[in-house]
Structures are given as C-alpha cells and as structure tokens.
Nucleic acid binder design. Structure first.
Lengths: 139, 139
DNA sequence: GACATAGTTTATAATAGTTCTAAACTATAG
DNA sequence: CTATAGTTTAGAACTATTATAAACTATGTC
C-alpha cells in the first residue's frame, strides 16, 4: 500500500467515512495533484475510467463527492453552467473565469483586496466574500 | 394602449424583436417595477399566471427570456441552485446572498471598491468583476 | 475467523430544469 | 391581400441530479 493511500485511509476514518476502495480511488483522482483541481461530475467519471480499468458507479461518485463536500474537502463553485463544478481548493480564494473557453483559474486571497465593503442588511453578517473576474481573449 | 405598453413595443422593435402580445406581457411582468427584480423561470410563470388569466407557454417564456438576455435587458446570475436566475438590473453590480433563505440583494457598484486587482493571465483582459458577499443570520 | 450490523455501492427509476421539434399562427413589408 | 420570415405552442427529448431498494462490505465483538 502506498504512503498516499494509507494517508487517505486515515483521513477518511478520521472523518467518519469508511475507507472503501471506491472512495480511495476517488481520493487519488482528486488529490494526487500538484495544483488545485476544478471538475464536474462527468469530468471525474471520465478521469476515473481512464485511471483504472474498473469503473465506479455514477451514484457512488455523486455520494462520495457530496460526502467530501460536507466534510469540507471540496467546495462547490457556481459558474452558471447547467452542471455543478467542484474545487479541491477549499480555502478562501477567488477566480478568473473565461466564459468562452470555460476556463477557471484560482486566485489566492492575498491577490485581491477590498477597500470598501458594504454594510450587510440588519441582522445579517458577512460570512464569505467571493470575487469573480470575468476574462476574455485580449484581441 | 398604455404609455408603458407603447414604450415596450418601441423598444422591442428597436431591438429587432417583434412586439407580440406574449412579449409585451412578459415585459410588464418584469419591468413594471420600482426595484430591480430577481427571478427564476418558474417564478415568472407563476407571476404571469396571476397577472393575466391567459397563460403563456413555458417554451415561449424560455425563448423570450433568452432573447431579452441576448439583447442585454436581463442578466443571468449564478447562485448554484439547480435552476437559473435572472436579474433585471443589467448594470455592473454586486450581491449579498443568503444561502439559507436564498435571499439575493443587489449592491450598487459604488458600494464596493477594490484596492488590489490581480493581473489577468497573459492574452486575457478583465471584462467584468462580480463580488458576492455570502451572508447569514447574525446570532 | 465467524457473525451481526450499520454503512456503502450499485443499477435503475424518478424527477426537475431546460432545450428541441415541427406544426400552427402572426407581424410586417410589399 | 399575400408572401414570408419570425413567433408561439404542446409535447417529446435530453441532461444533470436525486431517490430507491437490494446486494455488498468494513468494522467491532465474540
């Protein structure tokens, strides 16, 4: 068993998730990466298919992604496509988004600073700030 | 014919859209308002149903909203619900969003100022900046 | 290791939002 | 008034997602 695999097993157990072989494979597909990773469920299905000859059922992929999201290992991002996207970068951060190419690029939170912040409606507090910079080809 | 109706007819014609009675009714439902308006297609269907006894088919509502969006009279907003939302405020602006209550509140662009803006990837330029302040009940 | 059990996976059905299709209808120009 | 291109419509088709319920499996206990 690889070091990484053992680590996933430990993390899954610590989160109250049983380390099944499907979950470990999904961990490998998602987190064995240098950069943070953006994906849709259908992206992930394809990646799993290519990575292992064995397949994981669609329902399991949905279940697992939702479980990982609930445990805070994934963040859902909303770009207005018809389908949901997920981000392995769960820290506070921002995005460049190219609507043409559907490219999504992470921006570290230090790269963006707000000078003026509006006062929230009474009885509410600001929980999170997300800035999306819509970009396009520079002709 | 009301003043407003005549105005909608003119605007539709100027945009290259034939002023059909369905489109005029949809204009009334959307734009006869003081405040900017946020809605989903199903919201709009209900509103039309209540406003007039006559119904407009779902396909027409979709067609019309898409046409209005293409002409720049509506802006799509992405909140990560399963369905699309639209905003009659097409100017550059930002939002408060309460995920619990699904409340969405417009923020004028003057209320938000950015001190530091990241440099876009080479060959790309920033087209638009959207800031979402996620809010929640202040306990 | 065998067993019970609670958690998990799976194929499939069901649902929801949206888009497509093709026929009927209508605004508009000539 | 007529021709035509644009529009509306019901319903089918499609896509993403969630629900269902039966088979399977990780885990703790003996």
């Amino acid at each position: 068993m690889s070091n990484r695999e053992a680590n996933y097993i430990k993390k899954l157990r610590n989160s109250g998730l049983r380390p099944t072989k499907q979950r470990i494979k999904i961990c490998e597909a998602l987190f064995d990466r240098d950069k943070t990773f953006h994906f849709s469920i259908s992206d992930l299905m394809k990646i799993i298919k290519n990575l292992h000859n064995e397949k994981i059922s669609l329902a399991t992929v949905y279940n697992t992604i939702h479980a990982f999201q609930k445990k805070g290992y994934l963040k859902e991002i909303n770009l207005g496509n018809e389908n949901s996207f997920y981000d392995t970068n769960t820290s506070l951060h921002h995005h460049f988004y190219d609507e043409q190419t559907k490219e999504l690029i992470d921006i570290n939170s230090e790269e963006v600073e707000l000078k003026k912040i509006p006062t929230p409606p009474s009885g509410k507090k600001i929980e999170d700030i997300e800035v999306t910079f819509k970009i396009s080809k520079n002709i």
